[in-house]
């Protein structure tokens, strides 16, 4: 079936099997491999992208479900002037190690701050509950999100 999605500002159309997951559409069809897959139960959040501005786990959506929608992936975050403030904050706070959860974590954090402009550390911790990181113990991630929000 034909699926047409605006991805990082560009309309992308492709003929895919109806069962194609959004994450596989992004990775395998469009070659946007920054969005990672860490589980098969919608638990880890590595595949988080923005769908119409809100964070969504792209392993839990079919590509067909976002036909006509606006999707932002990690590749669409940095601009010509460099890293997005959230990416920059993750860098400066040492909020990543292996980096596998990072694209999803960053996208979830961007969405979180977009939703709550006055958020504290506990709010960040609860807000990122759906994104797992095995390396950092989260302390620096929380610090980075708070720093990006300032």
């Amino acid at each position: 079936m034909e699926v047409s999605v605006t991805v990082n500002g560009t309309v992308r159309s492709a003929d895919v099997e109806p069962r194609t997951l959004l994450v596989h559409y992004l990775r395998d069809v469009l070659g946007l491999t920054g969005t990672n897959i860490g589980c098969d139960t919608s638990s880890c959040g590595a595949c988080t992208v923005l769908v119409d501005g809100r964070s969504a786990k792209s392993c839990t959506l079919l590509a067909a479900q976002v036909d006509g929608a606006d999707v932002t992936t990690i590749e669409g975050l940095a601009g010509p002037d460099g890293l997005h403030p959230m990416q920059q904050a993750f860098h400066e706070c040492h909020a990543l190690q292996c980096g596998y959860c990072t694209p999803g974590m960053v996208m979830a954090a961007v969405s979180l701050l977009d939703e709550y402009d006055d958020i504290d550390a506990d709010g960040v911790r609860v807000g990122l509950e759906g994104n797992l990181c095995r390396c950092t113990g989260y302390q620096n991630i929380v610090a980075a999100v708070l720093a990006a929000g300032e």
Binding site: R27, G31, L32, T33, G34, T35, N36, I37, T73, I74, E75, L77, A78, L83, Q87, F90, H91, E92, H94, L96, C98, G99, Y100, T102, P103, V106
Partner: peptide
């Protein structure tokens, strides 16, 4: 010292095994 590894990982440029074409 901040990590030089970060930019590639933060932007999706880094290539993990399943990213290889």
């Amino acid at each position: 010292r901040l990590r030089r590894e970060d930019p590639a990982l933060l932007t999706g440029e880094a290539k993990f095994i399943d990213d290889l074409q």
